[in-house]
């Protein structure tokens, strides 16, 4: 098999990286404290868990608003526009080709940071799960201060279910970071901003169409 030369490109800006890790930290803390509130285990103590959860939850909520603002002013939201092009080859790659040592069918580039499967997953998370979690969390938090049109049990049950879905995402997400050229190449990409790609890889037009500036 022909081995391509690898080069590094600057893929994630400082803001994106900071936001990524901050959000990762906050969501992890929210899951840990949330599940303690849920009664799954005892860790910090219920009262501390509640205080920390509410504080981080609200902080995250407000920061997320800034992130959304950034997304739209920079046009980066277009990175999440779903596409079916090559979606199935990506799926085939992860479920089959990866075991044969074949290359990833879609390479990262500044115009297309995420492969089609990622786009779909991240869109689902960012546009569905996270907003649901924020809304149910906020309503839970404000339950005593606003008209109680949704019963607390419904809010709490959805909030818990989505929390577990997010935990599910986190596990898979973490694992997927190990599927780069080396176990930690994706992670170091998100830390330094520089991702390794194959030099010869041509970025396809459809991939960057949406984000092309000009």
């Amino acid at each position: 098999m022909k081995v391509n030369k690898r080069i590094k490109i600057y893929l994630y800006t400082r803001f994106e990286r900071l936001w990524h890790w901050l959000q990762a930290l906050m969501v992890t803390c929210l899951i840990i404290t949330g599940l303690e509130i849920h009664g799954t285990y005892k860790l910090f103590g219920f009262q501390t868990a509640v205080t920390v959860h509410n504080f981080i939850g609200l902080t995250w909520l407000i920061m997320f608003a800034f992130f959304v603002f950034w997304l739209f002013t920079t046009g980066e939201w277009k990175q999440y526009i779903p596409t079916t092009q090559k979606l199935f080859s990506v799926i085939r790659y992860y479920s089959w080709d990866i075991f044969q040592g074949k290359p990833h069918p879609v390479q990262k580039s500044t115009g297309a940071k995420h492969n089609p499967l990622q786009r779909l997953a991240y869109l689902g998370i960012s546009a569905m799960l996270l907003p649901i979690q924020m809304i149910t969390g906020l309503l839970y938090y404000l339950h005593n201060d606003i008209p109680q049109f949704i019963p607390l049990s419904a809010l709490a049950n959805i909030h818990t279910l989505v929390a577990l879905f997010l935990l599910n995402f986190l596990i898979i997400h973490l694992y997927m970071t190990t599927t780069g050229h080396s176990l930690f190449s994706h992670i170091s990409g998100m830390i330094t901003g520089w991702e390794e790609i194959y030099e010869t890889t041509k970025i396809q037009d459809w991939e960057t169409k949406a984000t092309k500036k000009g």
Partner: peptide
């Protein structure tokens, strides 16, 4: 009353945890 920490929905909790174990 819904009492956080005491109460849970058996069905939704099961679905959620199955997805976690599945992952």
């Amino acid at each position: 009353l819904y009492l956080p920490g005491r109460d849970k929905s058996k069905a939704l909790d099961t679905i959620g945890w199955l997805s976690v174990i599945g992952a």
